[in-house]
Measured scan of single mutants.
Amino acid sequence: MFYPNSPQTSPQLTQIPYGQQYAMMQRQIQQPYHPFATTEPQARLYPYHYQGPIQQEQGGFITQQSTAASPQYVQMRVTPVDQSIMSGYPNQTANGSSSSSFNYNIHPQQQQQQQQQQQQLRHHAMPVGSVPLQDDRYRKQLIVNYLAPDVTSTDLHELFSRFGELDGARIIYDKQTNMSKGYGFVYFCHAEDAKEAVERMSGYEFHGKWLKVGYSTNPLNIVPSNSSPYVHAGSRGAAG
């Protein structure tokens, strides 16, 4: 039997160049792979992502010199942007860049009308829970959420009447099932009393439920100042 490094198959040491006398086997001759043993700084910083320098080929596509990437890492192929796409944008300079302001050559009167329309939209648009300043009635009506099913309009009136005089209180019921929808409205005579009720009743436990109280901004629920107070009856038909 002959071994790869046996004296019968191995040459004389004098015939082997210096430095390879003890590297006779194939696994010894093959050098191990060192990912950080390279002179390129990109490979030292990113050993798993770097795959060699990027070269520009004919046709405008950018390719990489090395083989496919590892399945664990996804390499994105980048193509140059066609400058003709950006030619339609206004205020574009000769080098292809555009300024931040756009001039669509709008007539001054049209621009003024658009600004007025935007101001009107901001004036009428009102986020949930906010209180408008032009109508004091919005500051007097509250919406009470997360009410228990057994709470009546009379219970709601008695709960909030300790903060001040009320114009009314009612629970909203479903017309088909005649069941409470879980929320109601309270109408105060003074805005200061309503503000105190919002601050003190939010998070209050009532009939096993934690109440959420806020201003009601729905104009359909506003009680006119010259109208008669609501009837605080315990029956659902009268309260709904």
Rank of each mutant, 00 (worst) to 15 (best):
G240L: 06
R27F: 00
E40H: 12
R162D: 03
H107F: 08
N95P: 04
Q117I: 10
V186P: 00
G208K: 14
A68K: 15
A194C: 03
T9H: 09
Q117H: 13
F160T: 00
V74Y: 14
V78N: 15
D174P: 01
S202L: 15
L156W: 01
K140T: 04
D155C: 14
V198D: 00
L13Y: 10
Q118H: 13
Y46M: 14
Y183E: 02
S100G: 10
H123R: 12
P219D: 00
H123Q: 10
Y33L: 11
H232I: 09
E192F: 13
A125M: 11
Q15L: 02
G234V: 08
Y22A: 12
Q56D: 15
Q51F: 03
N5H: 08
S101T: 11
P35G: 06
I106T: 09
Q112P: 08
Q26A: 13
Q117S: 05
Q111C: 13
Q92D: 05
F160G: 00
L13P: 14
M126L: 09
Q42N: 12
G182F: 01
H123S: 08
S153F: 15
Q119T: 11
L159S: 00
F163E: 01
S227D: 05
V223I: 07
Q58A: 05
V144F: 01
A69S: 08
Y230N: 05
G214W: 07
Q21G: 08
Q28I: 02
E192G: 09
Y138K: 06
P149R: 14
S228A: 06
Q12C: 11
L121R: 10
V144E: 00
A37L: 05
S153P: 02
W210V: 02
A23K: 15
T9L: 08
D150Q: 14
V213S: 01
A194R: 01
G184K: 01
L13A: 12
T14N: 09
P149Y: 10
K181I: 02
D135A: 04
Q51S: 11
E165V: 13
D193R: 15
V81Y: 06
A239I: 05
S98Y: 13
Q75C: 02
F61A: 13
V131A: 08
P41T: 08
G214M: 02
N105G: 09
S227Q: 09
Q51I: 03
F163P: 01
P53S: 11
N145V: 02
S180E: 01
A239K: 11
V131Q: 10
P90C: 09
M25S: 12
Y33V: 11
A148D: 03
Q51M: 07
S70L: 03
R77E: 03
K140F: 00
V231Y: 14
S100P: 11
T38L: 06
E205G: 12
P32T: 07
P17C: 06
Y73G: 13
Q115N: 12
N226E: 04
V78I: 07
S84N: 11
G182N: 01
I29R: 14
R27T: 03
K209C: 02
G19C: 04
M25H: 13
L133N: 07
Q83L: 04
P127N: 12
N178K: 03
S216M: 01
P90K: 13
Y173G: 02
P7G: 08
F206P: 00
Q116L: 13
A169Y: 03
A125E: 03
G19E: 12
N145G: 00
S228G: 13
E199M: 15
F163L: 06
Q55T: 10
E192Q: 08
R27N: 03
K140H: 02
S153A: 04
Q65R: 15
D193G: 13
Q116S: 09
N221M: 14
N105L: 06
N103E: 06
V81N: 10
T63A: 11
Q176L: 13
S99N: 10
E165W: 15
T9C: 06
Q55H: 07
Y48M: 10
M201E: 00
S97M: 13
P35Y: 03
M25N: 12
D136M: 12
H123I: 07
W210K: 02
H107E: 07
P32Y: 05
Q20V: 02
Q176W: 14
N226A: 05
M25C: 13
G19Y: 05
R27V: 00
P149A: 04
D174K: 03
G237A: 12
G184W: 00
S227K: 11
A194L: 00
Q15Y: 03
M201S: 02
V131I: 10
R137F: 03
R27H: 03
R236V: 06
L133A: 08
N218Y: 01
L147E: 01
G203V: 03
L142Y: 00
S84G: 10
P149S: 02
Y183D: 00
P41H: 13
L121W: 08
S98P: 11
T9Q: 14
G19N: 06
Q28E: 05
S70T: 06
I54V: 11
Q30V: 06
T177W: 14
Y173I: 04
H34A: 05
Y50D: 14
E158V: 13
Y138M: 02
Q28Y: 05
M76S: 15
Q112L: 11
Q8H: 11
Q42S: 11
A169S: 11
A233S: 09
H190R: 11
D82P: 12
A43R: 13
T217V: 05
V151F: 01
R139P: 02
L13W: 08
T217D: 03
F188T: 00
T177R: 04
M201V: 07
S225F: 06
G234N: 05
A238F: 14
P17Q: 10
G182D: 01
D167A: 03
Y18Q: 09
G164L: 01
N218I: 00
S10R: 13
N178L: 15
P132K: 12
Q114D: 06
D174N: 07
D155T: 14
Y215R: 02
G168F: 01
F160M: 05
G96F: 07
Q111V: 12
L211G: 01
F188D: 02
F188I: 02
A233M: 13
S161H: 10
H157N: 08
G182H: 02
V198Y: 15
Q115D: 03
Q83D: 10
H49S: 05
Q118V: 12
R170H: 15
D136S: 08
N103P: 11
Q113V: 10
Y89W: 07
N218P: 01
V81A: 09
E165A: 13
T14R: 11
Q55E: 06
Y89S: 09
H190Q: 04
P71D: 14
D82N: 14
N103S: 05
P7I: 06
G214N: 07
S87T: 08
A169N: 01
I16R: 15
R139D: 03
P4E: 06
S235P: 14
L166N: 01
R236M: 05
Q141N: 00
S228W: 13
M201T: 03
I222P: 02
N105D: 07
D136F: 09
A197F: 01
I62H: 12
Q30I: 05
